[in-house]
Design a protein around this nucleic acid. Sequence first.
DNA 1: ATGTCGCGGGTACCGCGA
Length: 264
Amino acid sequence: MKIATWNINGVRARIGNLTHWLRESAPAIVCLQEIKTVDDQFPKAEIEALGYNVETHGQKGFNGVALLSRLPFDEVNRGLPGDDADEQARFIEGVFSTPKGALRVVSLYLPNGNPIDDPAKFPYKLSWMDRLEAWARERLALEEALVLAGDYNVIPEPIDAKNPRAWVNDALFQPQTRQAFRRLKNLSFTEAVRAVTDKADVYTFWDYQGGAWQKNNGIRIDHLLLSPEAADRLGSASIEKHVRSWEKPSDHVPVAVELELEAA
DNA sequence: ATGTCGCGGGTACCGCGA
């Protein structure tokens, strides 16, 4: 069963790209981030026409996440617990039934956090990461297949950037950011891409500016974290890099895993 | 550093967030 995550950078501006990719890649479940629309304006019909169920957690103008699934949803939860005052749409969880048991999938859009000297932005990122860790700790206790996928806005290691020195003052590569990501992973998650390759030059985002794509000046910030029960079933992980060369691309590309959750 | 982009507000481009 293919499960993919993609920061689409505006689903209404990119619906043609999205449907083309869904036909080509044929994932069973998709985690979208930065849909940048309210739920009412999400292009649901085009996606349902391809056989997907659609659940969104939208917001006007910014942020917004969604789950697309060929399996029916048993349960959907919107919003990361831990701060009732947090109005930003960055988290949606779906639960599915598979021949191998329950499958829980999250689409998350972790706060960017820049600039780091802003009184609100970087602290918001770090507190969001604390809330995510607390949430993950509870969910891991269920001992289910859990996939925590999305745009983490975290460059985990120097090897995950073409030019790591350019990121030392950026919220995506702060020691506190990297440490919070390690704390999350250390709860017992397997990071899917690094489970299958230790190569350099493996990126998921290339800025629109400065010819970043042409120079392969990328960073790896879109990740899928797998619970032990999901990691047991990991077949492969891949970055669908060619999508960045399409017309009117998102600045991110899809990242996917294959999990063996079908009937034997 | 930037050779950029999507969206909202309000109808021409600018501010914002990334």
